[in-house]
Design a protein around this nucleic acid. Structure first.
Length: 625
RNA sequence: GUCCCGGUAGCUCAGUUGGAUAGAGCAGCAGAUUUCUAAUCUGCAGGUCGGUGGUUCGAUCCCACCCCGGGACGCCA
């Protein structure tokens, strides 16, 4: 995947100030030479590969020296000598090492000052004040179908990306592309109406069964019939299959008729269809709430929303000479690609690509998005590749203000069982999301209750209901963190034992670090101890402070790369460095007053950054656990 | 057959426009605890970065070919 999908205004953090300082130094040092290159030279500032090399390193000298035909260490020295005071004041004297690396070590005062500057409501994260707009396609449930693990990913990855941009001050449009139109819905609807079921009173589970039954009924058993003839089974069996075939044909005809009435606005059918959606969405919203996901009716932009835009979409491609007839269907062809994009079936009706094209146009030209993010299963990679190319071909990536929007698919991998096959129940069915979450919550509660049983546990005095609430937060965090903490495009094996573990790179580990800090802060508050001026003295304080300072950059990187795992990696690093600090640096006992005040300040900042980062993934951070 | 995605420690995975000795977690081993919550911390051990060539001062990263695994391929979404 290509890198920067979103341009965010870069924070004025330490790394940026070092970067700016070196740019100035390079320009000054190089003014001696005839301009080698008109482009500004990137000082290539990185976090140091190893603590013994300092905090940051600048890697510009090697490649630059080559183009100048000079010795890299000399070039590095010349640049270092030209460092402006703004840069020199920040750092200890520079060291030139190896082939020409510049090692940069921050002065403790610089760290304390930068951290003090970061201590605000924004925590140093930039805010674009709604000058950018993004649309995020998420969730994408199908009406009358139970949510399964695939929807878990489309929902929480989408929600995290949406929250990430909200945190950066973007205008965010959540788009729930419901499967609420077309033949599958009509089949279920027809079956329910035939059975005279009161649709408003059924559960999603009932609907799910009706959906599957309708699918099975509607399956045209031509293949079975042909096989029966070929393998010479008895006439009785063939008659049975023929009857089934006729039944299927009748069900299908009924479904088509229902679809026609739905599409032409038949009031009774439309009313039942709406009930079907209501029942489905009621449970979807419940699940979303359980997951902490911001998903509401106003985010619905399902297939039905685009129904009147389908014909104009097809017409536009025909008018632009971008679609051609092929075997009765309309296809868009691409240069250098065998695979075409079907935008109209030979019976004249449209299909999913048509809706996606209409939706892309809506998101860019009606909503004004400069970026449209699709959180959809990786198996639809080719499909979106084609759709995006088609949108570009017809020029719909151009926004009202003339700027180009980009469309990006964030493909996510499958959730696998321990057999490395897509997760299934014992009976071979897809796991419903609800079943999965119930199990995780039960596990979280078990862990929390077990620990509260110890008399000196901080949770010992809590009521069972309070412990249940914490346990639920732990269980949900376990699942969400596991899902979001590795590159989302990859498959992962669902292993509840690992996820719910309080050790290692897990949600509960992060929550635990937060609870530990909250415990100290509560105690400090009870003792009347207050945070004060920061003093960075020990290696653990330094490490914690530097990690805190990385927060704004981590958030910006996560956004520009649409990579939730970057947030998780930051959280894990921070929780780790905090725990090391906790071990080595007593806050409330055995420390003089100024040390205590400084460490309390570090604790307070760490807690807020941790809670803020977790909130972007919509993971709750309990104060006790 | 065409195209897409992946292959890094026993297992699960990071690796941010090519940079110093490839990093974590789990599992294993050795330590630390009358705890500001040990759900923790410190240390040890663990690698032909799928393979072979190429580009480069320098490659897990870029290019070519090959091997293995997964996926998608016109009227489902």
């Amino acid at each position: 995947m290509s890198q920067n999908h979103a341009r965010t205004s870069r924070t004025n953090d330490l790394a940026s100030r070092i970067d700016a300082g070196f740019r100035t130094a390079i320009a000054a040092a190089l003014s001696d030479y005839a301009s080698v290159n008109s482009a500004p030279i990137d000082p290539l500032i990185k976090a140091a590969a190893n603590p013994k090399f300092g905090d940051f390193q600048a890697n510009f000298a090697m490649s630059l020296a080559k183009s100048l035909g000079k010795n890299p260490r000399e070039v590095a020295q010349q640049v270092v000598d030209a460092a402006p005071p703004s840069l020199r004041d920040l750092c200890e004297p520079f060291e030139i090492a190896g082939p020409g690396f510049v090692n940069i070590r921050l002065r403790p005062e610089s760290i304390a000052n930068a951290l003090t500057a970061m201590d605000s409501a924004t925590l140093g994260v930039s805010n674009d004040n709604k000058t950018h707009t993004v649309a995020v396609d998420l969730c994408g449930v199908n009406v009358a179908k139970q949510m399964h693990v695939g929807h878990l990913r489309a929902t929480i990855i989408g929600d995290t990306i949406a929250r990430l941009f909200e945190r950066l001050g973007w205008n965010v449009h959540r788009q729930n592309h419901l499967g609420d139109w077309g033949l599958p819905i009509a089949m279920t609807l027809a079956a329910l109406r035939r059975a005279k079921v009161d649709i408003a009173r059924v559960t999603l589970d009932d609907l799910n069964r009706a959906y599957r039954r309708a699918q099975a009924e509607g399956r045209d058993d031509e293949a079975g019939l042909a096989a029966a003839h070929a393998t010479a089974v008895g006439p009785h069996r063939i008659a049975e299959l023929e009857a089934q075939h006729e039944g299927a044909a009748a069900a299908l005809a009924d479904a088509h008729d229902t679809l026609r009435r739905l599409q032409s606005g038949d009031a009774a059918v439309v009313a039942d269809w709406q009930k079907l959606i209501d029942v489905t969405m009621h449970e979807v919203y419940e699940t979303a709430q359980l997951l902490g996901v911001d998903l509401k009716p106003e985010h619905n932009r399902g297939e039905s929303f685009f129904r009147d835009r389908l014909t104009p979409t097809v017409d536009a491609f025909v008018a632009a000479n971008l679609a051609v007839r092929d075997a009765g269907a309309l296809v868009v062809r691409f240069e250098g690609r065998e695979r075409p994009l079907l935008i109209q079936k030979s019976d004249g009706t449209s299909l999913y690509a048509t809706t996606d094209l209409a939706a892309a146009r809506y998101r860019i030209q009606d909503l004004g998005s400069e970026l449209v993010v699709y959180c959809v299963d990786a198996r639809q990679r080719d499909h979106f590749n084609d759709v995006f190319d088609a949108v570009a071909l017809i020029g719909w990536t151009k926004r009202a203000d003339g700027r180009e929007a980009s469309l990006v698919h964030v493909p996510f991998g499958a959730v696998l069982g321990s057999d490395k096959r897509p997760l299934k129940t014992r009976s071979g069915e897809n796991f419903t999301l609800k079943a999965l979450l119930d199990e995780a919550i039960a596990r979280g509660r078990r862990e929390v209750h077990a620990r509260a049983a110890s008399p000196d546990a901080p949770t010992a005095a809590l009521s069972p209901a309070e412990l249940d609430a914490i346990g639920q937060a732990v269980g949900i965090a376990a699942i969400k963190y596991a899902d979001l903490s590795s590159d989302v495009s990859r498959d992962y094996v669902f292993d509840l034992d690992r996820m719910v573990s309080f050790e290692g790179d897990t949600g509960p580990y992060a929550q635990y670090a937060h609870a530990r800090i909250a415990g100290i802060l509560a105690k400090a508050s009870a003792q009347g101890a207050a945070a004060g001026a920061l003093v960075i003295a020990t290696p653990q304080e330094r490490s914690l402070a530097l990690n805190l300072l990385r927060y704004p950059g981590a958030i910006e990187d996560a956004a520009s790369q649409l990579a939730p795992n970057r947030i998780a990696a930051f959280i894990f690093e921070l929780a780790n460095t905090f725990n090391a600090f906790y071990q080595a640096c007593p806050v409330l006992r055995g420390a003089d007053e100024s040390t205590r005040a400084s460490r309390l300040h570090l604790c307070d900042l760490t807690r807020r950054v941790l809670a803020d980062a977790l909130s972007i993934m919509a993971i709750t951070a309990p104060s006790r656990m």
